[in-house]
């Protein structure tokens, strides 16, 4: 995915200063770095930042995951032997980790289709409305721009044992209540995240919907296609690239889940039923002092997300590529 996008771009892979600098010794030095070599200097802070704070840790994570690594005081030299796949074996045979992957699976099965469906429906309606457009748009984005920690407070209040939701449901209220019920805790977290992130995905779909030419709808209307026919045959295929992106981003966000199980269900409760892999990483790595195992878990998680993303791209993206 990433490889394709970088090589497919006309800007990339084409360093300046090709055939122009032929045999002209005084100009060669200047042209070797291109007509505006100062651009290198302008890019330097960003490049150094990316290499030091993002690229290096990426490799470091893999290094940690293959060694017997533990926390030490700064500048203390200790021996950290290479242990092969030991950390990976520890991760994959850990029942808590297995449970967390199951949980994140449940989460994604609920969250991703719901996100794609609802954000497309709402964006489609929002795209056609002319009055109050800004009001609706704004109201959908508000949860997205608000801190999860803040909104979690309200959800706790709404979903507690004798909260407003259970009051409204009356005898239909589940026992035990939503967030302390081992069957409902993860679905509730998934619903919460869908609600919280939907505005962002509506934004993506709105941009994609602008690119569908009006003529398509007009000719479909002339041919007698009703709204649903138009929606399925014009809108859905028209926004397919956006759907791929939405699916991918929703999956990545879902795999990063931490705040919600930590706060909403009080640390992945009940009994680990809503623990996410990142929450287990935090537990194993920082609370219990096993950064090597946690790093291995991170690598496994990322590989898992990549695999899911590839499958999703096939399913959602159709046969075009």
């Amino acid at each position: 995915m990433s490889l394709r996008s970088s090589s497919g771009n006309p800007v990339t892979g084409k360093p300046a200063g090709g055939p122009a600098d032929r045999r002209l010794v005084p100009r060669k030095r200047k042209n070797f770095l291109g007509p505006q070599p100062l651009g290198l200097l302008f890019s330097a802070p960003y490049v150094i930042y990316v290499l030091a704070v993002l690229a290096f840790p990426l490799g470091y994570a893999v290094y940690i995951s293959f060694h017997d690594f533990f926390f030490t005081a700064p500048r203390v030299k200790v021996d950290r032997p290479f242990v092969g796949f030991d950390n990976y074996i520890a991760v994959l045979s850990d029942p808590a980790v297995q449970r967390s992957f199951l949980n994140i699976g449940v989460f994604l099965i609920i969250n991703v289709p719901l996100t794609v469906g609802l954000s497309l429906l709402l964006a489609n309606a929002l795209n056609r409305i002319t009055r109050f457009k800004t009001f609706f748009r704004l109201s959908y984005y508000v949860p997205y721009v608000t801190a999860s920690v803040a909104v979690v407070g309200v959800w706790l209040f709404l979903f507690q044992q004798n909260g407003l939701l259970n009051t409204l449901l009356g005898p239909l209220a589940p026992t035990p209540s939503w967030l302390v019920n081992s069957w409902l805790a993860m679905p509730t977290v998934a619903l919460y995240v869908t609600w919280k992130q939907l505005g962002f995905f509506i934004l993506l779909y709105l941009a994609a919907l602008q690119n569908i030419p009006d003529e398509l709808y007009e000719s479909a209307a002339v041919d007698g296609g009703n709204k649903w026919v138009q929606f399925w045959n014009i809108t859905v295929p028209g926004v397919r690239p956006a759907s791929v992106l939405v699916t991918l981003l929703a999956t990545i966000t879902g795999a990063n889940l931490f705040t919600e199980p930590y706060l909403l269900t009080g640390g992945g409760g009940p009994d680990g039923a809503s623990a996410s892999p990142v929450f287990i990483m935090y537990q194993r790595g920082l609370l219990q002092g096993n950064p090597d195992v946690a790093a291995a878990l991170g690598v496994v998680l990322v590989i898992g997300v990549l695999l899911i993303a590839l499958i999703q791209k096939r399913l959602v993206g159709g046969k075009e590529d």
Binding site: M1, S2, S5, S6, N9, V11, T12, G13, K14, P15, A16, G17, F32, L33, G34, P35, Q36, P37, L38, G39, L40, F42, S43, Y46, V47, V50, L54, A55, F56, P57, L58, Y60, A61, I64, I252, A255, N256, P277, V278, M281, Y282, G285, P291, A294, A295, G298, V299, L301, V302, V305
Partner: peptide, 27 residues
Amino acid sequence: MKFRGRGVVFGMMLLVQMIPFQLLLIP
């Protein structure tokens, strides 16, 4: 600006946005 390595910087900027934060957490 046109300079040598611009494509590399651009590709880097795109790739960086795909790095999952959970992998960077521990390191």
